[in-house]
Amino acid sequence: MKIDLNADIGEGFGCYTMGDDEALMEIISSANIACGFHAGDPVIMDRTIRLAARRGIDIGAHVGFPDMLGFGRRQIQADPHELSNYVVYQLGALSGLARRAGCKMTHMSFHGALGNMAAADDALADPLVKAIAEFDPGLIISVSTNTAIERAAERYGLTCATAFLADRAYDDQGALVSRKLPGAVIEDKAAVLQRVVELLQDGCIRSISGNKLEMKVRQILVHGDTGGAVALAGSIRQAIADAGGDVVPVSRLV
């Protein structure tokens, strides 16, 4: 069994930091790097890219709404063409910095409210994914299960890597539960780890209502901005090793 251990990082701004990115990068195999819209800035992006490259970690763009005050978790109603330009702008920024550092951007993921909206709406997912395909048809899209993003990726010939968000609850259809609802974010680290162990052992998770859901994943995602993220990532990596698995960058799995 080979699986990617993935984290959202680079989510500080200026002199403000969020999460212990350097410690996380000793554990993970791919990174989703904020591109300056919901968090991050050119200096942080450059530093994060170079740290990841030195460790052989896959570099991905984490694109969201232009909403630093709300950390990209507030919905913005805008024309889909405008939103597709937001996506390409962020991809271009990270790709350019990666190229200058002598490495390549391998994947991307949608952050926060933008990702939730696109996942639930085929009419929105289509132009956003089309824009990704026009920018770089070789990019892997890191995505949760049962989403409009997956369907659009299939239409445009893009590869998806299904990610299991270890600290987020899923509904009975395999979609993420809204953060506005109780229990959407699982804060008990032992419970998070148990979900990972169950997934590794039998390929299933428990929905928020307790039902078993089969989930074929390529990535396990840890949110770098949450408390205890480094310890949790280390425990998950150990659980993968205990199950006889290997942690491998996502670009080597698809």
Rank of each mutant, 00 (worst) to 15 (best):
F37Y: 15
F37W: 10
H38W: 13
H38I: 13
H38G: 01
H38K: 02
H38M: 10
A39G: 06
G40Q: 00
G40M: 01
G40F: 01
D41V: 12
D41W: 06
P42G: 01
V43Q: 07
V43K: 04
V43H: 10
M45G: 01
D46K: 15
D46P: 05
D46F: 09
R47E: 15
R47N: 14
T48I: 12
T48N: 04
T48A: 06
T48R: 03
T48L: 09
I49P: 03
R50D: 12
A53S: 14
A53V: 07
R55L: 10
R55Y: 09
R55I: 14
R55T: 12
G56E: 11
I57T: 12
D58Q: 10
I59L: 02
I59W: 04
I59P: 00
I59T: 08
I59K: 00
G60E: 03
A61H: 01
A61N: 02
H62G: 05
H62T: 07
H62F: 06
H62R: 04
V63W: 01
V63K: 03
V63G: 02
V63A: 00
V63F: 05
F65I: 10
F65D: 05
F65T: 11
F65A: 09
P66Q: 05
P66H: 05
D67A: 06
D67Y: 12
D67S: 08
D67R: 03
D67N: 12
M68F: 10
M68D: 05
G70M: 07
F71C: 07
F71L: 14
G72I: 04
G72P: 04
R73A: 09
R73Y: 13
R73T: 14
R74Y: 08
R74P: 10
I76Y: 01
I76S: 00
Q77C: 13
Q77M: 12
Q77G: 13
A78H: 05
A78F: 07
